[in-house]
């Protein structure tokens, strides 16, 4: 019977990885979010190792006695998860770079259309306007380029309309 009591060092490490990861996920900058995702992903991978029980001999049939082998299945799953995380990290990095190319920053922005609807609700205005009400703002791309959130302390910003 394999000893199933978890390794306390691993458990504490998992806790720290998840806590720091969640903290970083709450940031605006995509690079920090990315590091948060990596930390949480590694926490999950360690969790798999703990789930597989205590460490043992290499799981190769014939070389080692079967009772002393470590469980190979969680290791296989961790390998798969690591490969997937690698791919996602590369993609997020590319995304952050593209955001920097376009806006010179990699901050995750708010939804402009969402804000517009919220502003209309705040001044008790109708979402859908007719011929005789005010003209809507420019395209989403134009507004997205202007909207940057940490600089205006989160207050809804009035976009100047042409």
């Amino acid at each position: 019977m394999i000893d199933m009591s978890p390794n306390i060092v691993l458990v504490v490490t998992i806790g720290v990885l998840f806590a720091t990861g969640v903290y970083l996920l709450l940031e605006r900058s995509l690079s920090r979010v990315l590091i948060g995702v990596i930390l949480i992903g590694n926490g999950a991978n360690l969790l798999f190792l703990v789930a597989g029980g205590a460490a043992g001999r290499p799981p190769i049939v014939g070389d080692e006695p079967e009772g002393q082998m470590s469980d190979p299945l969680p290791q296989a799953m961790v390998l798969t998860a690591i490969v997937i995380t690698l791919g996602m990290t590369a993609f997020l990095l590319a995304l952050a770079y593209r955001s920097w190319q376009l806006h010179r920053h990699d901050e995750v922005q708010d939804d402009v259309e969402d804000r517009r609807i919220a502003q209309l609700a705040a001044v008790d205005e109708r979402a859908v306007t007719d011929l005789d009400t005010e003209v809507a703002a420019g395209s989403l791309d134009e507004e997205a380029a202007e909207a940057r959130d940490e600089t205006d302390q989160g207050a809804p910003r009035r976009v100047v309309r042409p």
């Binding site: 996920l25 995702v37 997937i84 997020l92 995304l95 955001s99 376009l102 791309d141 997205a144």
Partner: peptide
């Protein structure tokens, strides 16, 4: 484009979180 990168970022981070 700028708008798709913005929307994509939110989509991807949320999806990654649910995967974890």
């Amino acid at each position: 484009t700028g708008e798709r990168i913005r929307a994509g970022t939110i989509y991807i981070v949320v999806a990654l979180l649910s995967s974890v």
